[in-house]
Design a protein around this nucleic acid. Sequence first.
DNA 1: GTTACACCTTTACGTAACGTCAATGTCAAC
DNA 2: GTTGACATTGACGTTACGTAAAGGTGTAAC
Lengths: 254, 254
Amino acid sequence: MEYTVQKLGKLAGISTRTLRYYDEIGILKPARINSSGYRIYGQKEVDRLQQILFYRELGVSLKNIKDIILSPSFDRVEALKQHHIRLLEKKKQLETLIINVEKSIAMSEGRVKMSDQEKFEGFKQKLIDENEEKYGKEVREKYGDEVVDKSNAHLKNMSKEDYERIQTLSVQIDEALTEAFKTGDPAGSMGQKVAELHKQWISLCWGHYNKEAHAGVAQMYVDDERFTLYYDKEQPGRAEFLRDAILIYTGMSK
Amino acid sequence: MEYTVQKLGKLAGISTRTLRYYDEIGILKPARINSSGYRIYGQKEVDRLQQILFYRELGVSLKNIKDIILSPSFDRVEALKQHHIRLLEKKKQLETLIINVEKSIAMSEGRVKMSDQEKFEGFKQKLIDENEEKYGKEVREKYGDEVVDKSNAHLKNMSKEDYERIQTLSVQIDEALTEAFKTGDPAGSMGQKVAELHKQWISLCWGHYNKEAHAGVAQMYVDDERFTLYYDKEQPGRAEFLRDAILIYTGMSK
DNA sequence: GTTACACCTTTACGTAACGTCAATGTCAAC
DNA sequence: GTTGACATTGACGTTACGTAAAGGTGTAAC
C-alpha cells in the first residue's frame, strides 16, 4: 500500500505539516518522490511512523527518537517490549492520578482530609519523562534493569517464577472477568473459572489458602473503594460480579 | 502552610521557572510578596495549582485554563468531576495503545497479522484534546450527576450511619497509621490501636469478623499493588507496617 | 565580620514541535 | 477550461517553558 501525506496523516491521526516536518528533520523520509514532487510513503515508512509515535507518546524528544531508530543496533522488537513496560508504568501513574481526583472530590465534599502532598500525587510523570530523554542505548540498558528491579522490589522473599506467575494471573483474572461479566452469571462456568484463577492468585500471595479469608477479600472488593474503583473502571458492576462469583465458589453465598 | 517558589515547586513536581511563568501570565499569582520581594503561596494557591495541573494533564492550553478557572461561574467540584471523566477516557485510550503494542510484538514475531489502521489505534487522543478545548460549562453540567450516582452505587444496602461510620474509620485509620508508623513498632500500643480500628472497619464492611480473614487481608496490603500504592504513597513501608500490626493483633504472626 | 552557600529576584534570549499563512503547481472531474 | 481538492516550498508565529546573566537575601560557619 502506498500513501500520500494526507492519507498517511489520516491513518495515523497527525497533520500533513507534521509529516513534512519529520521529513525535514530526517526522522521519516518518504519512500520516494513521484514525478510531480509528491511524497509517497510505503510499508516500511508506516511501521517506522508507528515506532516514532510510540516514543513520542512516552515523551521522548524527536532528536532522541532519531538517534534511537537510526542507530544500526536498533532492535524493533526490543523497542516494542520497552514501550510495553513504559506504557504500563504510565498507566499506573494515571491510576494514581484518578485516585487523586476522586479523593479531591471527596475532600471538597468534606468526606476526607488530604495533605498538600497528596494533592499532587500522580502528576510527577515528569521525572519519568526526563529519564526518557536520556534514552541513549547504554542508558536504556542500564535503566531498563533498574526499572525491572524496582518493580520487583517486593519480590524479595519470592522466587522469580512465582512472581511472574502472579503477574500473569493478574492479567488473566482481569481478562477472564471481562469475558465472564458479559454472561451476567457469576455461578456459570466462566464466572467460576474467574474465581478459580483468583484462588490460585491468592494462594500464591499468601502461601496458603483458606475459604473464609477468600470470601472476606471478595466482600472487600465491593466495600473498599480502592478495589471497587479498580475493578469497575471499565464496566460498573464488575467488582460485585467478582465478589458473587467468589462467594459462590467458596460456598459462602447465603 | 506557606510556600516559597522552590518549596511549592518540589511539592507539585514543577520548576520554579514554571511558577514564575504562571505568575507572569496571571494564571497563578502568589498570595503575597514578602519584604524581600519573594513570592509566598498559601492554601488557596496550592489548590488552584492542583486544578491547573489537572487541566494541563488533559491537554488544555494555559490560555484556556486561565479562562476557565478565572470565570466567575467556575465550580471547583464540578471541574474535578469532569477531570475524573476525562482521565478515565484517557486511561481507556492508554489501554488501547497497550493492546496495540502487544499486538505489534506478536506481529513482529509472526504470530498475527495487523492492518495498517490497527497499527495506529490508541494514538488518536488528539480528538479528545480538541474536545477539551471546547470545555464549555454546558457540557460539564451534562455529565456531572452521572459520576455522583456511580460513586454512591455500593451504598445501596447500607444504612446512612454505617456508611458514615465507615468513612470516619477510614480517615482515623489513615491518621493513626501515620502516627504509629513514626514509632516504628507495629507491636506497640499505637500500632495495635491501628489494628483495632481496622478490625472495626472490617467488621462493619463484612457484617462479621474472622481472624484468619483479617490476617489475609493484611497480607494482601503488601501483596496487592493497588493497596501498596495507596498506603505507601506518603511513606514507603506503611503497608508493611499495617500488615505487621494486624498479624500481631490477630496472633497470626509466626 | 566576612565568607560561603543556597536561596530569591528580574531581564532576556533560546528551543521544540509544530500551526498558520502565502504563493504556487497538479490532477481528476464536470 | 475552470473548479476544487490535493500537493509543493518558504517563512514567520506560537506555546510553554529552559537556560544563562547579573544581582539581592538569609543563615550558618569560620
